[in-house]
Design a protein around this nucleic acid. Sequence first.
DNA 1: GACTTATGTATCGACATCCGATATATTGGT
DNA 2: ACCAATATATCGGATGTCGATACATAAGTC
Lengths: 121, 121
Amino acid sequence: MADQIESELLRGSMDLMVLSVLAQSPKYGYLLQKALSDNSQQQIKLSAGTMYPLLHRLEEAGLVSSRWDESTGRRRKWYELTAKGRKKLVKQAELWQQYANCINRLLTEIKLVIPTPATQG
Amino acid sequence: MADQIESELLRGSMDLMVLSVLAQSPKYGYLLQKALSDNSQQQIKLSAGTMYPLLHRLEEAGLVSSRWDESTGRRRKWYELTAKGRKKLVKQAELWQQYANCINRLLTEIKLVIPTPATQG
DNA sequence: GACTTATGTATCGACATCCGATATATTGGT
DNA sequence: ACCAATATATCGGATGTCGATACATAAGTC
């Protein structure tokens, strides 16, 4: 299994990943970390120092809503996508595709990757 | 033609793109801007305020070398990849592929994109 | 000649993101 | 009693991005 992906490359798209994982199902922070790690074959680690401010930003922007669950021994804050968040996710996913296609085209031109059919956009 | 890609999503991979474009041929800053824009169907714009510090960082790190050309009316600083820069580019391109595959997998799972065959890695 | 646009490099300050370190508290296992 | 895992949160430092600004020359236009 490959190492964890360098953060340098990840900057700016953490929002997209978090929105994606939350789109699967509502989660609380700690669970979100595990889910993202699992979904990426342990390649993407989201540190607490990155995640919590990020979640607060998303909530501030109205993209997720949260509620505390104190019913169990554990004090957990569950986050779920709002309608606005879902729209944002779709838009960001499209942008990502564009972006990825751009870079892939660049890398393909210098023959660093095997050409792949453009997905869309 | 789609709009310019939001910078938010681009953070952290400008280095990769610049190294890629320089791998095609040596360029001076202003030419690099045009080349990157052309190579991305005008979707990626590299502002001067981003580019020059970036080029200086790459040179500082020994990934590119530069020399002034004063032979024409225009004063130009040409940049070209060093051997170290080329190695770095190959490595970063591999990381990029890993990263892109991770995100694509995430987006595929929530059915926001049409699944594509994994390129590699 | 005067004016504007394009070319060309560069720095500055404001702002955002990322992350390690740290704090706090509970649960479960040994 | 101790330690690891669970769980949320903030702080400060490092870094990246970009609009604004500065400066200078060349080319085109009125």
